[in-house]
């Protein structure tokens, strides 16, 4: 991923419309957003405001109804499904609220999942997964299945899976939403460290002001529009 002007993400005049039967639901309308490389951005807003939709558009999980989404100089809304999948595998790490780990795989194997899409050997995949687990402080739990891990530990595995391919962009959808305060703080510490020490650009959707305070910038989304201030 190439970063030209120092802006990693450039969203221009994006609309997103969902259809429910004959009804059209306008979730985002004429939205513009620029995210500099290396930023830790928090996205806040009420439920249904379009935060997750915006995150999905940035991560290439969904396509805009109109407008363009450029990430690292690539117009990802123009890519075919196959190329978009390959782009996600290379450049994006995803962290989910409910961790979304495969219950049938150990922590180590969960972290290795994105590496299956690479040409790395089995030994190399294992080695990289071990390093990722080490970064999140879970190398001692690598053979544990998700059901035997606490929520905080599962989220750490989720983060390890997100960073194992060394992506530039980390997209976190309420990463502390299912955790207690202490575990949530540990996850936020980890995300901050990844941003500061490894230069990861992070976009985090959250409802939690306390979590948003860890970000370098917070934007509020309401009725499909972004602002720097929380609108009542």
């Amino acid at each position: 991923m190439t970063q030209g002007s120092g802006d990693l993400v450039q969203i221009k005049n994006v609309d997103k419309v969902f259809k429910r039967g004959s009804e059209e639901i306008h979730v985002l309308g004429g939205l513009d957003l620029t995210i500099p490389d290396g930023e830790f951005l928090a996205l806040m807003g009420p439920s249904g405001s379009g935060k997750s939709t915006l995150l999905n558009l940035i991560g290439g999980l969904d396509r805009p109804s109109q407008g363009s989404v450029e990430v690292g100089g690539e117009n990802i809304d123009q890519l075919s499904d196959r190329r978009l999948a390959a782009w996600r595998a290379r450049h994006v790490g995803l962290v989910f609220q409910f961790y979304n780990l495969m219950p049938v795989l150990t922590a180590q194997k969960n972290v290795e999942l994105p590496l299956l899409l690479t040409h790395l050997s089995r030994a190399e995949r294992k080695k990289r997964a071990a390093i990722a687990l080490d970064i999140v402080g879970l190398s001692h739990r690598n053979h544990h299945f998700p059901r035997t891990l606490s929520g905080g530990e599962q989220q750490r595995v989720g983060i390890a899976r997100a960073i194992v391919t060394d992506p530039t962009l980390l997209l976190c959808d309420e990463p502390t939403g299912d955790l207690d305060r202490k575990s949530g703080d540990e996850i936020l510490d980890l995300l901050q460290a990844l941003n500061r020490e490894q230069g990861k650009t992070i976009v985090m959707v959250t409802h939690d002001i306390h979590a948003a305070a860890r970000a370098s910038r917070t934007l509020y989304l309401n009725k499909g529009r972004l602002s720097t201030e929380l609108e009542e």
Partner: peptide, 16 residues
């Protein structure tokens, strides 16, 4: 369904 969606999200193709 959710797990399959996660696989796609992390880069598995539709055909994959």
């Amino acid at each position: 369904t959710n797990e399959l969606a996660v696989l796609k999200a992390i880069g598995f193709t539709d055909r994959g």
